[in-house]
Each structure stands twice: as structure tokens, then as C-alpha cells.
């Protein structure tokens, strides 16, 4: 509902948007090949580099970051628990299992097919997680993320085992550790589907917010709770699976970004969704740029950078109590 949230969303939203614009430009000029500002327009090779590699990479980071943050937010809404996210609760691992199986059984499959099958696998894995999570006693909120970790760990172990058996272990790290260095024009565009999911989430934002009030309150307000659960599951699964297929797992985005925004702006999704998406994009793009700079001219994968940065932010969140208004 667009009453109070809209009033104070501009600040957080605009700041995130401004930082994102700065990072966008920075990202176009950061990389192994030197590319001074002046040369972009004067030199054909410079334009080519931007169009084929730098721009796709930058867009991929923005799309993945924004959609993963939204996926985390929706996952938390569905599980009614703030400490779950797709990469730690079996969604990403199920997607990996899906890709692995396609790679084994149908090596010639194109990216779209892989993406679809990974999404289907993620959907099954996440549904099982949620069905179990809803049975855990609500009085012990830490059981849900704990169960998620174990569940994701078991599926992850199965993935490793299958990959080892099939002698595909060296492929595995492509999916398990997020990395934008391989992103080129023509290889990342599926991520726009994730952006589409974000737009869709914005359309059902009020319903999702009502779902955070619980099943009974949702039904009382005339919402089809089961169907909304299913829709939410599809959004989460498609976003996570696509980003696993295209860039690999990027941890923590879906966890820390929604939590920070919730503390600053509350949980009225109609107002907070844009800020969550923008902040997710800032975090992932920022970590990718950092990864390109730390050991220049070598690169550190974004998954690794995010593991450190995201982990630190998460610890900070845990130890700092929410500020009251």
C-alpha cells in the first residue's frame, strides 16, 4: 500500500540509484585491458570492448544483484523467516543438480534449456524446503535457517558426488562460485528473465506483504494463500536458477540486502522493493569491481569477494540490533 512507505523511500532508493550509476560507469572502465576514458569514442577497438564485454558484464552484475536480492526477500516472505536465502536453503544447490543432469544427459542443450531445467529442479527443491520449514515450530525461528543449511548441504554433497562420478568436477566450480569474467554479449541475456520476475514481484507486492502476516490473516483478507506461495516459489526458483546457470552462485546478497532495507524502511514491499533491487545491484556490481581491482591484472571471482563482504555485513547485522523509529 503506497501510503507511508513511499514518503521515505526516495532517500534510500535515490542514494542506491546514484551509487549504482557511479559504479556503472566505473565498471565500464575497470578491467584487465587498459581503457582510458578518452579512447572509448576515438578508438573502434575501445567501443568494441565495451559492447562485447564490459557492458554485458556490468549489466549481468546489475541484473543478477537486483534479482537475487528480490529472490531472497521473497524467500524470506514465503518462509516467514528473515534468515533464509536461496543460496543457503537448497534452491541454488537444486539448480546445480539440474544443470549437472542436463550436462550429463544432454550435453548439446542450449542455455535456455539449461536454464529451464535448472529452474524446474530449483522449484522442486525449494518446495520441499518450504513444506518442511512450515512444519517447524514457529517458536524457534533459528530452526528454519539451520534446516536450510543442512538441506542445502545434503543436495550440494549429492551434486559433488555426481560430478565426481562423471568426472565433471572441474565444471562444477563454474556454477558453485559466481564469476562474471566469462560474461560476453550473447551469453548473459537470459538474466533479463530474472528482471522480468522482479517486475512481476512488484505487481504482487501488496499480496506478498500480506503474506508476511501469516496464512490466516492472508485468507482473512481474501488472498489465495496457496497460489501466492506457488507464484513466489516460481519467482525465487527462476531467478536463482538463471543466475546459477549464467554466472554461478553468489552468496549472501539475498540475505543481507533485504535485512538492511527492512531495518531502514520496514517491510511494506510496495515501498521497499525498488530499494532492495537497487541495493542488491550495488552490492554485486561493487563486489565485482573490487574483485577486478584487488589483484590487478588478475581477477578474484565475485562469489569469493561476496563471501567475505557479505559475511562481514551479515555478522554486523547480527550484532547490531534493529534501530527503533
Amino acid at each position: 500500500m503506497s501510503t507511508a512507505a513511499v514518503k521515505q523511500s526516495p532517500l534510500t532508493g535515490w542514494i542506491a540509484g546514484l551509487v549504482l550509476a557511479i559504479l556503472f560507469v566505473l565498471s565500464l572502465f575497470t578491467g584487465v585491458d587498459e581503457l582510458p576514458f578518452g579512447r572509448v569514442l576515438s578508438d573502434g577497438r575501445g567501443i568494441e570492448l565495451v559492447l562485447v564485454s564490459r557492458l554485458p558484464r556490468t549489466l549481468a552484475a546489475i541484473l543478477a544483484g537486483a534479482s537475487l536480492a528480490i529472490a531472497g526477500l521473497i524467500m524470506q516472505t514465503l518462509a516467514r523467516n528473515r534468515y533464509v536465502e536461496p543460496s543457503t536453503a537448497g534452491t541454488a544447490q537444486s539448480a546445480e543438480l539440474g544443470i549437472l543432469l542436463v550436462t550429463l544427459l544432454w550435453p548439446a542443450a542450449n542455455l535456455l534449456t539449461k536454464g529451464l531445467i535448472a529452474s524446474a529442479a530449483a522449484l522442486i527443491g525449494t518446495s520441499l524446503f518450504l513444506a518442511t520449514a512450515h512444519r517447524l515450530p514457529p517458536t524457534q525461528p533459528f530452526l528454519v535457517p539451520l534446516f536450510g543449511l543442512v538441506y542445502g548441504g545434503v543436495i550440494g554433497a549429492a551434486v559433488t558426488f555426481v560430478a565426481w562420478q562423471a568426472d565433471l568436477l572441474q565444471y562444477l566450480s563454474i556454477w558453485t562460485n559466481g564469476d562474471f569474467s566469462g560474461v560476453l554479449r550473447g551469453r548473459y541475456e537470459l538474466l533479463w528473465l530474472g528482471a522480468l520476475m522482479v517486475v512481476f514481484a512488484w505487481f504482487i507486492a501488496d499480496r506478498l506483504t500480506i503474506m508476511t502476516l501469516g496464512r490466516d490473516a492472508s485468507i482473512g483478507l481474501g488472498i489465495d494463500y496457496r497460489r501466492m506461495l506457488q507464484l513466489g516459489l516460481v519467482i525465487v526458483s527462476v531467478i536463482s536458477a538463471l543466475s546459477v546457470v549464467i554466472v554461478g552462485v553468489i552468496p549472501f546478497v539475498g540475505l543481507v540486502v533485504p535485512n538492511i532495507v527492512s531495518r531502514l524502511m520496514g517491510d511494506n514491499l510496495r515501498g521497499t522493493l525498488p530499494a532492495v533491487a537497487a541495493s542488491g545491484a550495488v552490492l554485486v556490481l561493487g563486489c565485482d569491481i573490487l574483485g577486478r581491482l584487488i589483484r590487478h591484472p588478475y581477477e578474484v571471482p565475485v562469489g569469493t569477494v561476496m563471501g567475505c563482504v557479505g559475511g562481514l555485513i551479515f555478522l554486523w547485522l547480527l550484532f547490531r540490533r534493529p534501530s527503533d523509529v
Binding site: 512507505a5 490466516d216 517491510d267
Partner: peptide, 30 residues
């Protein structure tokens, strides 16, 4: 209906919470 043990775990402002009760009537656009 107001249930006996309603818990609101989300960070919503009072006005937002009360506003959501209008959802059956206006489906989100107040």
C-alpha cells in the same frame, strides 16, 4: 476475523497494517 494469537512479525507501520485491511475492497490501490 481477529485470531486469538495473531503475531505480526513484519516491520509495518500501524497505518500500513490497518491499511492492508482494505485490500479486499480496493486490491492494493487505496
Amino acid at each position: 476475523i481477529l485470531r486469538q494469537d495473531s503475531i505480526v512479525a513484519s516491520r509495518l507501520r500501524v497505518r500500513e497494517l490497518v491499511g492492508f485491511s482494505r485490500f479486499p475492497h480496493s486490491r492494493g490501490r487505496l
